[in-house]
Amino acid sequence: MKTASSTFSSSWLIKHTLLGLGIIAILTGSVLLTKSHLSSYFAPTSYGIGGLLKVKEIDLLFIGSSHTRQSYNVALIEKKCNCKAYALAYSGMDPHLMYIYLSYLKTRNDLKIKKIVFEAYSFKLIADPSLSDSRIYSEAPFELKLKLLESISSNVPGMDFRKLFNLVVNENNESLIAAPVANYALDLVSYKGGYKNKVTGSLSEKEFSELHKVVSNKLKYIENDIQIQSLKKIQDLYNSTKIIFVDPPMPEPITHNAITSKAMIRYKEIIEGMGYKYLAPWYGLERARKPSNFQDWNHLSNIGRDIFSEEIVDKLALKSF
């Protein structure tokens, strides 16, 4: 009989390697399957898709990137229009991802949305599809995860096996482990996808005057076809009374730039060509020249956010709910 410390034989090695690999494969597969199906249940309830799916009826849904989260004071808007609003915002959400999200929401019979404000951030027209916030995937329900995986694996440049592995297996497990505490902490600072009383800093006059340097002269205007097609496919989901495209405010030194101006004009052209409404509410206005309204080169400060939120209700005639 073989003792524990005997020289191993090849049959021993094969048997134990297979056994070890088998156990690891079963455990990994089980954890992965469980994670894929259940991670959405651990998503925050005051932020992102998790919070949205908890609410059954929404009068007004803002969808977009960090611009959306920074641009709309949801509580203020709700108060002003006497409606139920929600900001579904993840960093870096682009038309490509927003279309996938909206097409999924459309299939949810338990969720009623009256009006959608789609973030028309003009730069995204010339940006490759990307997934800059992995929560876009990890907080999504299983069916949405599948749609996202299918699309990003073929449309996001550089999405190789390692990145997909990281996304599916590796990312955001901390949020699951620490969900009770982390979600509670998030609830303290979030309200329906937006910030709750977040006070941000503002740009100084000097910082504001140097913003034109942010947009690189080397940047070329090359439209991304996937982003444009994603915008056009919105027509298959919602008609023009249901969805409005709004470009959130940016500082004038950024918008008054050849590339940005061209992107904005083109965005407007595409949207209006589809028969939808496009708005760039602060473009050319004095507010866009005021440093205190901006936190950085492309996000509103809390001062700017409150001003913009007050205005947008009137601008979009949202009092009609």
Binding site: I177, A178, A179, A185, L186, S190
Partner: peptide, 14 residues
């Protein structure tokens, strides 16, 4: 650099 930081800190401590 975002609101997941607390989850990362808790996980690291655990």
């Amino acid at each position: 650099s975002d609101n997941r930081a607390i989850a990362h800190l808790i996980t690291a401590i655990l």
